[in-house]
Structure formats: structure tokens, C-alpha cells
């Protein structure tokens, strides 16, 4: 037996991560469009419990790359093991979720295999028998189409949230099979030291009902007062996009986005935030999204419910007054 579409799993706290399930959904969709089977590859050490969980995720096969050299993630270890599995199994497609780990090793793997990787795709569509993969360029302002040519395998990573994990078709039980990998051939040159939480997350914004979030458009730390007044008027928690936290204008534990917190409040009020992908992934499931930005083409307006194109230094004080008048 062999698999046509190989999805590479990632674990979190000993279970399959949600983004892995999203990647399986991508594989199931592609499999149904192309009439191909889907398998899931687990890498790590002592994978038997995880393998049972994986077998129930609606895949034909679960492949295991189980080795002590894979207990901790390293780019050399993962790329080396995957290269061997891919060369032996010869799938048509290898699918990943575009996590920080995948960003670290998938381009290396692609180069080692001499095969293309389309990274961070937001969806695909079929043109005849061939999928066209779509990814964003210019920080989400423009979409770009890519086809894949030459001999398989083709490598594709999908952005977190590109596919909905709730759409998983978890029918049947996949067969579990160990792969033959020779890890003596793989030299691991980096040494993993400790993993730690950078900032004690003192604020849990995931439970906030209303959030006022501020971006680069605020320009100076003195101007933060303006946003604090808006937050007070709306009885909202205050948060920010990455540049504002990098500059120290708000503590790091108030950062929203891929490297910060993921939130889904009833109201997300974005002030001077252009809406780079890294920010959007952290807040796109919010109920009502308001955006105030001077750039009418800012991507934040693509996901906002209400937009105001204008100078936030004029608009925000007026909003504070208008909100207070209605309380």
C-alpha cells in the first residue's frame, strides 16, 4: 500500500495539533478532487498512543517515523527523516500546516529533494485536473496563483485556518505502518536546549468581550492615551499588533497574532492596524470587527464589518465622545 497525499503531522502536548487536523482536511479535499488516498506521517519517539489517535482521523494510513533522534525537533533530524520517507513512499503531494516548525525545516527539505514548496497557501482551486495553489503576497494585499510542474512529489504548506478542522471526515480506521528510516545517515548539527515561555501571560485576552487593539498607525507612545480613552469608553481590554509591543509601548502579553494571543471577542476595534497576515490569524474569528485606518487598501478592511478611512487622531476622540453619549 502506498499513499498519494502525505500529510505531515505536528503534535502539541502529546496530541495532534489543531493545525494538523486542518492539514488533513486539506488533504481530504485534494484527495477527493484528484481521486487519491491520504496518509498521515508522525515523527517523534514512542508514537504508539499518538498513532491510535491519528488512525481515527479519516486517513487511509498512518506512517510512523519513530526514533530517538526525532524526540526533540531539529531541522536536520526532521528534514533527514522526511527526505527518506518521501523518497521511499513517493507520494504525489506532501502537505503541511505552515507552523513555525514547518517554516524552519520544509524549505530545507524541499531544497534537499530538489522539489518545489508552495508555502503559506490560503486555498487551492482545480483547473481541469490540476490544482492551482493560492498564496498571498505584499502582506496580504494581493493574491498569487501557482501551479506545480515536473515530476512529483510537490510540497505545499497551508496557512493556519485556511481549512476548517471541523470539516474533518473521520470515517474508518487507518492502518498503522512503521517506515524504514536510517537515522545513522542523518547528522543533527543543532543542539536543543530549554524551551520556555517568554512572557508570563498575565493577561488572558482570549476571554475578553471587547478589545481595542492598536497598531503602527499610532506613531508615538504619547498617543497611546487616545486608545486607552477609547478602551475605557467601550469597557474594553487593550491590545496591540506586534510592532507596538516590539517598541515597548505595551507589554508583550498584550500582543495579538501568530506570535502572541489568539482572540475572538464580541467586538474587535482595530486602530491604525493595516492587517498583516500575522495579525489577522490572531483575531479573524472576532464577532464584530471595526477598523480605522488612513489607507483605504489596508487588508484589515477585507475582514472588517465597519470601516472608517481617515486620520485616527481625529476619528478616535470623536468616537469616544459618541460612545459616551450613548451610555
Amino acid at each position: 500500500m502506498s499513499v498519494d497525499i502525505l500529510v505531515v503531522a505536528e503534535q502539541r502536548d502529546g496530541a495532534l495539533s489543531r493545525s494538523t487536523v486542518e492539514a488533513i482536511v486539506a488533504g481530504q479535499n485534494l484527495g477527493s478532487d484528484l481521486g487519491k488516498s491520504v496518509g498521515l506521517l508522525l515523527l517523534g519517539q514512542n508514537l504508539s498512543d499518538l498513532a491510535d489517535e491519528a488512525a481515527a482521523k479519516g486517513v487511509q494510513e498512518v506512517l510512523l517515523a519513530d526514533h530517538e533522534k526525532l524526540a526533540d525537533y531539529t531541522p536536520d533530524g526532521y528534514s533527514g527523516a522526511l527526505q527518506q520517507v518521501i523518497e521511499a513512499e513517493n507520494p504525489d503531494y506532501v502537505l503541511f500546516s505552515h507552523t513555525y516548525m514547518v517554516r524552519d525545516y520544509a524549505p530545507k527539505l524541499a531544497a534537499a529533494l530538489g522539489k518545489p514548496l508552495v508555502s503559506d497557501c490560503i486555498h487551492y482551486r482545480m483547473e481541469g485536473r490540476a490544482p492551482i495553489f493560492v498564496r498571498q503576497v505584499f502582506q496580504g494585499k494581493i493574491d498569487a496563483d501557482f501551479a506545480l510542474q515536473g515530476d512529483a512529489p510537490y510540497l505545499v504548506s497551508f496557512q493556519t485556518g485556511a481549512f476548517n478542522a471541523d470539516n474533518l471526515k473521520a470515517e474508518g480506521t487507518g492502518a498503522i505502518r512503521a517506515t524504514n528510516i536510517d537515522m545513522d545517515r542523518v547528522e543533527v548539527r543543532t543542539k536543543v536546549l530549554e524551551i520556555f515561555e517568554g512572557v508570563k501571560q498575565e493577561v488572558d485576552l482570549s476571554k475578553a468581550e471587547r478589545i481595542v487593539s492598536v497598531g503602527r498607525g499610532i506613531k508615538k507612545p504619547e498617543n497611546m492615551e487616545l486608545v486607552k480613552e477609547l478602551a475605557e469608553a467601550l469597557e474594553a481590554d487593550i491590545a496591540a499588533s506586534r510592532p507596538v509591543c516590539d517598541d515597548g509601548w505595551l507589554p508583550l502579553d498584550r500582543q495579538i497574532g501568530s506570535s502572541g494571543q489568539t482572540v475572538a471577542p464580541k467586538l474587535y476595534f482595530a486602530v491604525g492596524i493595516s492587517g498583516a497576515i500575522q495579525h489577522i490569524v490572531g483575531m479573524k474569528n472576532s464577532g464584530t470587527i471595526v477598523a480605522v485606518n488612513k489607507d483605504p487598501h489596508a487588508p484589515i478592511f477585507d475582514i472588517a464589518d465597519y470601516g472608517i478611512v481617515g486620520d485616527l487622531f481625529e476619528v478616535i476622540p470623536a468616537v469616544v465622545t459618541a460612545v459616551k453619549a450613548r451610555k
Binding site: D143, A144, F146, P296, D302, G307, I308, G310
Partner: peptide, 23 residues
């Protein structure tokens, strides 16, 4: 093997209501 085909403005899945007027 990577065949870049074209760029285009993304289709909006959601249309923000843009409010017009002075501040």
C-alpha cells in the same frame, strides 16, 4: 517546478461597511 501564473486583487469574502463623512 514552481510555475508562478499571475497576481490579482483578492476577492473580498466580506464587504466592510465604510462609513463616510467628517470625523
Amino acid at each position: 517546478g514552481l510555475d508562478f501564473q499571475k497576481v490579482y486583487v483578492p476577492e473580498k469574502t466580506k464587504q466592510a461597511l465604510i462609513l463616510e463623512g467628517d470625523p
